[in-house]
Design a protein around this nucleic acid. Sequence first.
DNA 1: CGTTAAATCGGAATCATTCTTATTTACAAA
DNA 2: TTTGTAAATAAGAATGATTCCGATTTAACG
Lengths: 135, 135
Amino acid sequence: MNLHRALKELKEKGHKYTDKREDLLRFFYEHNGYRTARDVKIMMEDKYPGISFDTIYRNLHLFVDLGLLEVTELEGEKHFRMKCESKHHHHFICLDCGKTKEIHTCPMQQVSGELQDYSVENHKFEIYGKCPACK
Amino acid sequence: MNLHRALKELKEKGHKYTDKREDLLRFFYEHNGYRTARDVKIMMEDKYPGISFDTIYRNLHLFVDLGLLEVTELEGEKHFRMKCESKHHHHFICLDCGKTKEIHTCPMQQVSGELQDYSVENHKFEIYGKCPACK
DNA sequence: CGTTAAATCGGAATCATTCTTATTTACAAA
DNA sequence: TTTGTAAATAAGAATGATTCCGATTTAACG
């Protein structure tokens, strides 16, 4: 998902363009990894002093609903990142900087046999550690 | 992990025996699945009116530290279950009742090649949906 | 029994997140 | 360009899970 396409999609779905939304999306576009609402707030406060958490969360969730961002829960806090372009995959997540690396192994094919009578709704496979830069 | 061994371990590590601790462990022993602190509180309030969340959380975390319970984060809330006996595996988790099914597929072997320069600390693979009873 | 550290209680505090109400703004239509 | 309207925002209160704190109680050991 690139910035231009994300903004276009926003408009097409009938949502308004605001500088805050562009900056928020750009923030994620420029960072290949997961960030929290708090991270976003700190980044935004320079340009928009007094921006409220409400605005940030509202937009983050809107963007998740529109498929522009992805969300995962990490240590009791929601973390967001730009939606990946490529086909289904999982992530290594650096616990220091939040940067991610795509993992192209998905265990769900092998698993299906074990869950005959179950209705599977979704799954989560994440690997945590330190990236080369933070190690 | 069975109840008797859990209580024995508690004692051996220098912790005190209390009825509350036994009941708490029994609760998990008798339920093959994840439960929240709130679930525990509701269960305990019959016998111990006025039991505090502090006591429950303190014990839950103590038990996790001792390896008697496992914990996972689900929809912004910590969920606990009796520590599994068997070797490394993952879980299907029913989003209705919290019951689990062991999944004996672990993708980490295939993944190692993708993470040469990374330091891997842990990983999470969980499958969510409805169990046959709740479906 | 008496001592003592551990456990508990009760309630305040914290942290992430959501809600409420009033105000402002983007943008479409006149 | 002006204006009407729904959407977006601000500010702060409210919520829900979890943790902390000070005072009190209790298990366990000698």
